[in-house]
Nucleic acid binder design. Structure first.
Lengths: 153, 153
DNA sequence: CTACCTGCAAAGGGTTTGCAGGGCA
DNA sequence: TGCCCTGCAAACCCTTTGCAGGTAG
């Protein structure tokens, strides 16, 4: 499930490759993002840099995230339950998110679903698809009312 | 494609049924919405009430739209290309939107796609789906590069 | 050394809210 | 008449931008 973690060197490599400077601000944001176990908003990233003793300004976080997205290192997504954009380390796989409205977990669903949708629209509607966004909210298996099985949380 | 238009009486009926007052502000917003041939933002609704000689405040438009949604008369959606929520008269059919990035048209795609997605997630992942949001942007058939067929715009 | 980057503060877009007066029932 | 609804203005949240000083290369 969790592939090997993104490395600090990934950032430095991409920055240098495109002529950007390697700065402590960019490292701080990247470190927060690559060690996070969930999606983070810009504001949450600031909180975590604070906690790590390296305060980064919110504006710089936004600028850095835009850059990381451009470098292919970060991915932005807008979850159903949040007004703010959320960020995660970019995966190679096409995937969409299933948000549990009970525990708040966000599952990554990797699959052909998006490709199937594109295909269907292209064939049946002559629609040339550039972008598909699929977002799902509900209850994850763990949080469903425990009917058949015993244990309660 | 276009079913019979929503009626002014629909609004009055739903309002009275739930104990809300029938006001000229609510009629004005509803009239704009039911005669629109596309999705409208709150701001656009204000512009149209202005044009119709019945100015409605933006705040009231927002309050009215929330109410219309609650009454099941209007449906909110966030299109891919817009920061603002868009509104349309609620249809009975489950559908999603295909936005053409060239002409700006928003097609309503009615079909089983959303149901298929729900089903798939429920069966394969034990995920109890409450909400699915599917948004697609691309080029509609009309706006695709005219290769095989002759005519140019 | 110098162009790029950063923090700070202010502005910006969309939406919500508090309040006092106005109009539906 | 009484309470709901409205317009107005201000506040709110998230994000972007202008600017002057700091720092990587």
């Amino acid at each position: 499930m969790s592939m090997e973690p993104a490395r600090r060197a990934d950032l430095e490599h991409e920055l240098r490759a495109r002529g950007y400077r390697v700065t402590s601000t960019r490292r701080a944001v990247w470190d927060v993002l690559r060690f996070a176990h969930r999606h983070l908003t810009a504001y949450e990233i600031v909180a975590r840099t604070d906690a790590a003793g390296r305060r980064v300004d919110l504006a710089s976080v936004y600028r850095t995230l835009d850059l990381l997205e451009d470098l292919g290192l970060a991915r932005r997504s807008r979850l159903l339950r949040s007004e703010a954009d959320s960020w995660e380390v970019a995966h190679a796989d096409e995937h969409f998110h299933m948000e549990c409205i009970h525990c708040g977990d966000v599952d990554h669903h990797v699959g052909a679903l998006v490709a199937v949708i594109e295909d269907h629209l292209g064939k049946d509607h002559g629609f040339d698809v550039y972008e598909v966004e699929l977002r799902v909210a509900g209850r994850c298996a763990t949080c469903r009312e425990p009917r058949a099985s015993g244990r309660r949380a």
